[in-house]
């Protein structure tokens, strides 16, 4: 005790350090969260008119064609909404021009589109989708990822028989065992016609979210990663 006591064995020193580290990490996280929240705010129909990219675009994207392409400028795949155009800095971006019919219409107003995806999200939660599927890669691993489900090649092959892929997906959701494609099939969750339409709208909207290139090489069935070398 009499000899000099090292700071390293001082309880106080470590307590202060722990408090400092915890405090500053929390404050940084809060600042980063404010910034992320601003960037992740859902866009509006105006942004789309002005061709401004948003990480999470306005739900009116359901009026447009959606694609998923490699942008050399960003260095990964990005959603391409309404056709592509050149970026002034190089690479490609969404043009927000090419429309396509979604359940027979391509003029959903911002309000209508928001109502639709509101019901879609509620249904997705009410039916517990996340405990079999993954959404944006999070959830259970018993069924396929739904992040880009709208763009999955499976629906392209089924679309002609149903007059468009939105009808095919909606038909599937209302009675999955009937259209089962694998032994591990989805149960009938009592999804109504309106709910099915809303869920399809949500899936289309979700495929337009910029996920920093996840899933990589989506849709390139033969030799995905290696094909690009």
């Amino acid at each position: 005790m009499e000899e000099k006591v090292s700071v390293w064995t001082s309880n106080r020193f470590w307590r202060r350090s722990a408090t400092w580290v915890t405090g500053v990490a929390s404050v940084l996280l809060i600042f980063l969260t404010f910034d992320s929240m601003a960037q992740m705010k859902m866009g509006s129909a105006k942004d789309i008119e002005k061709k401004i990219d948003r990480r999470i675009p306005s739900p009116v994207v359901i009026n447009y064609t959606i694609d998923y392409k490699l942008d050399p400028y960003r260095g990964h795949e990005i959603p391409i909404i309404g056709g592509e155009m050149r970026r002034p800095e190089g690479g490609i971006k969404s043009a927000y021009e090419k429309k396509e019919k979604f359940f027979g219409r391509d003029d959903y107003s911002e309000k209508e589109a928001r109502e639709l995806i509101h019901k879609g999200k509620l249904t997705i939660q009410a039916k517990n989708c996340m405990d079999c599927h993954t959404l944006l890669g999070n959830g259970a691993y018993y069924a396929p990822d739904l992040t880009k489900a709208w763009l999955d090649p499976t629906w392209e092959t089924l679309a002609p028989a149903y007059n468009g892929k939105e009808y095919a997906i909606a038909a599937f959701l209302q009675d999955p065992p009937k259209m089962a494609m694998h032994e591990r099939k989805m149960p009938n969750l009592g999804i109504t016609k309106e709910e099915a339409k809303a869920v399809v709208a949500y899936l289309k909207f979700m495929s337009a979210i910029d996920t920093n290139g996840f899933p990589r090489n989506f849709g390139k069935i033969k030799g995905a990663v290696d094909a690009r070398k």
Partner: peptide, 10 residues
Amino acid sequence: MEYYIQDIPS
């Protein structure tokens, strides 16, 4: 950014 995440062969 391009430098950050390169494709990785399987």
